[in-house]
Nucleic acid binder design. Structure first.
Length: 420
RNA sequence: GGAAGGGUGGCAGAGUGGUCGAAUGCGCUGGUCUUGAAAACCAGAGUGCCCGAAAGGGUACCGGGGGUUCGAAUCCCCCCCCUUCCGCCA
């Protein structure tokens, strides 16, 4: 939710943000609606005030007395007027709220202007793509992959994009999850296992609704949505909560399956594990004081990058441009891992600061030193998405003899040096 | 899924149609007293929105939504949640 003060006093900032982010919403119409709403609220309040004053008078009159009956007669007209105004107030209020929900968050000044992915800036890299295995092939062409990841089986049981991981591959996924969770715990994140279905209020608070409705799977007749990321239930756990200053920053980690419709994808983009409809992801979520939120974003990103160091996966760091960052985002980094077999970069993490945008929608506040309530800032990062990380590990570690040697960091979790 | 009971301010807990934003107690904040603390006493204190430079004023909020009424925390309807019992179940 946009800060009303900004909308009212600096509408040009909002117009600019909408344009830069490639969203369509009529800011000026919303401002006009805001003024209309205030007028109606004021007249409703005024009428209610008169009604309440009369009620107090009537409380002092003997019931059934002529004055009392006369007063009732007088009050009937006012009562009708109050109802009419309240109805209007409700209608305009709902419309106002719906419209406000269509305004995206304002990008941070450090976010580059841009239309699409070509305008994202590569601002860092680690590792050397040239040094990955000379035997690397696309993961979907590896014999071990074909044997232990059953894409056709998923197609039969559910549909395309719902892979089975079998035997050593299932064990490797589990090893990765455990590795990610242990690393997060060591970095101070508290583990949470959340519900995988959320209601509309939760999806609205984090910004999936109404903007990205088509990207979530909906459960008919229940009003529930399958979560597209753990961010949704985890952030919403503290909906309507008030933190004490000492509780912040609060750090949580959750591993969940994520469900995404991803309509319109095709070709090599979706081959193998490149893009699937259900995948596991370990997600880091932070609730922080507003002042330090951009520093918190850097440390959050480092928490994700550390995993890639330990997995010995070359990656690059992207600063996403205004046209590419999401609806509720103020600033976003993507981490892309080098896929030695496909010779391309695969996004495995997205690290974002939502500033107070989600906190306003979700009403997540803290009591400041001034004793007043303020909105927290929320941030999150993938650490990490499993399928693409797995793909890169498989591709980049093919040995001379064709076997796949796992990174040392995984040995304690997988139990063996080589896959299978 | 069935039955019964319940959801009121930070907590506990009154309030069953009118001056109730709501008694009382605990907790909290400030003050008096005290060398200090405790106790006692006094005072204060919710959140959103609207008007206002501010002081302040107004309004809404008693789980959520609708209804009855001149007037609803209080009466009626629907929904949600909690507790207990029964059924079913990993």
């Amino acid at each position: 939710m946009i800060d009303l003060n900004i909308l009212r006093k600096q509408p040009e900032l909002v117009r600019k943000a909408v344009q830069a982010k490639k969203f369509t919403c009529d800011v000026d119409a919303i401002i006009a609606l805001d003024e209309k709403r205030r007028k109606i609220f004021t007249s409703t309040q005024e009428a209610r005030s008169r009604q309440k004053a009369a009620n107090s008078e009537m409380a002092g009159l003997p019931k059934g007395s002529p004055e009392f009956l006369e007063k009732i007669k007088q009050m009937k007209q006012l009562s009708i007027e109050v109802r009419k105004l309240q109805k209007q107030q409700q209608e305009v209020g709902e419309e106002w709220e719906n419209q406000l929900l269509t305004i995206p968050n304002i990008p941070h000044e450090s976010v580059p202007e841009g239309d699409d992915e070509k305008d994202n800036q590569v601002i860092g890299a680690w590792g050397d793509p040239e040094e990955v295995s000379p035997h690397a092939v696309p993961h979907y062409d590896l014999p071990l992959f074909q044997k232990y990841v059953d894409l056709a089986g998923g197609g039969k049981v559910t549909g395309a994009g719902f892979p089975f991981f079998i035997g050593p591959m299932a064990r490797l996924v589990r090893a990765l999850i455990r590795f990610f969770l242990e690393e997060a715990a060591a970095a101070g994140y508290e583990e949470i296992i959340p519900p995988l279905l959320v209601n509309a209020a939760s999806a609205t608070a984090t910004g999936q609704l109404p903007d990205k409705e088509g990207q979530m799977y909906e459960i008919p007749d229940s009003g529930f949505y399958l979560i597209p990321t753990a961010e949704v239930p985890v952030t919403n756990l503290y909906r309507d909560a008030v933190f004490e200053i000492g509780d912040l920053p609060k750090l949580s980690v959750a591993c969940t399956p994520c469900f995404r419709r991803e309509a319109g994808s095709y070709g090599k983009e979706v081959r193998g594990l490149n893009r699937v409809h259900q995948f596991d992801k370990v997600e880091l979520v932070k609730w922080v004081l507003p002042e330090g939120s951009y520093d918190e974003l850097e440390s959050l990103r480092e928490d994700s990058e550390r995993l890639l160091h330990k997995l010995e996966l070359p990656y690059r760091r992207l600063l996403m441009c205004t046209g590419e960052i999401g609806f509720p985002h103020a600033k976003q980094y993507d981490l892309e891992v080098w896929s030695g077999g496909q010779k391309r970069w695969l996004e495995v993490s997205s690290c974002s600061n939502f500033t107070d945008f989600q906190a306003r929608r979700a009403n997540i506040r803290f009591r400041g030193p001034d004793g007043k309530l303020h909105f927290v800032h929320t941030l999150n990062a993938s650490a990490l998405a499993l399928p693409r990380t797995l793909a890169a590990i498989l591709e980049n570690n093919v040995q001379d003899d064709g076997r796949i040697r796992l990174p040392d960091a995984l040995t304690p979790f997988y139990g063996e040096e080589y896959l299978a």
